[in-house]
Measured scan of single mutants.
Amino acid sequence: GQTTVQVRVPYRVVGLVVGPKGATIKRIQQQTHTYIVTPSRDKEPVFEVTGMPENVDRAREEIEMHI
């Protein structure tokens, strides 16, 4: 079944991970077949990644490449 993982990043890289108009996070979602919730600016900088476990792992690696 599907799993949801929280990926915490430093505040300063949230914009990098999301990309211009969300382009980068969309690409990560498409490439890894996951659904990613982006943290809002006034909340903790935690991305929520949902999908099959192996896909979630890949998405987390993609996010962490920006750190």
Rank of each mutant, 00 (worst) to 15 (best):
H66A: 15
K43S: 15
P20E: 12
E48P: 02
P45N: 01
G19M: 00
N55K: 04
V14A: 06
P45L: 07
V17N: 01
E62R: 09
T24K: 09
E48T: 13
E44H: 02
P53N: 09
I63K: 11
V9M: 04
R12K: 14
E64W: 11
E64K: 11
V17I: 14
A23S: 12
P45F: 08
V56M: 07
E61K: 14
I63D: 00
K26G: 02
T32W: 00
Q30W: 06
T24G: 08
T3Y: 09
E48I: 14
V56C: 14
R60I: 13
A59M: 09
T38A: 13
E61Q: 13
K43P: 06
V9C: 09
Q30M: 08
E62H: 05
R58Q: 09
R8M: 06
V5T: 07
T38L: 10
E48H: 11
R27A: 08
H33F: 07
P53L: 05
K43W: 07
V14H: 03
G22S: 06
Q2I: 11
I25F: 00
I63M: 02
Q30F: 02
G51K: 07
R27E: 06
Q2P: 11
D42K: 12
G22V: 05
V46L: 09
T3R: 07
V9P: 01
G51Q: 02
V18G: 02
T50Q: 05
Y11K: 15
E61D: 13
R27H: 02
E61N: 09
M65N: 14
T3H: 10
G19V: 02
V18E: 10
Q31I: 11
V56P: 05
L16H: 13
V14M: 11
R41V: 12
P45Q: 07
E61Y: 11
I63T: 04
V9S: 02
K43R: 12
K21P: 01
S40E: 13
M65I: 12
A23N: 06
V13A: 13
N55R: 02
D57M: 15
E64Q: 13
M65F: 10
R12S: 15
G19K: 02
E48M: 13
V46D: 02
R60A: 03
E61W: 09
Q29W: 04
T4M: 03
R41S: 13
G22I: 00
P39R: 10
G15Q: 11
Q30P: 01
H33E: 10
I25H: 05
A23T: 13
E54M: 05
R27F: 02
K43I: 05
V17P: 02
Q30V: 06
R27K: 15
I25K: 02
T34W: 00
L16E: 12
I28V: 07
V14E: 06
R60V: 14
V18R: 06
Y35W: 12
V18F: 08
V7W: 00
I28T: 09
E64Y: 10
V56T: 10
Q6H: 12
Y35E: 13
T34Y: 00
T34F: 00
R58A: 10
V17H: 11
E61R: 15
D42A: 09
Q31H: 14
Q6W: 06
L16R: 14
Q31K: 14
H66F: 15
V5E: 04
M52W: 08
A59C: 08
G15P: 12
R58C: 09
S40R: 13
V13H: 13
V37R: 15
V18M: 12
T4S: 02
P20C: 07
D42H: 11
R41F: 09
V49Q: 01
E48Y: 10
V18Q: 04
P10G: 02
V37F: 00
F47R: 03
A23Q: 14
T32I: 00
V49G: 07
R60Q: 04
T24I: 02
Q29F: 01
V46P: 04
V46Y: 12
T3S: 09
N55D: 14
N55W: 00
G22Q: 11
L16P: 05
T50D: 01
I25N: 04
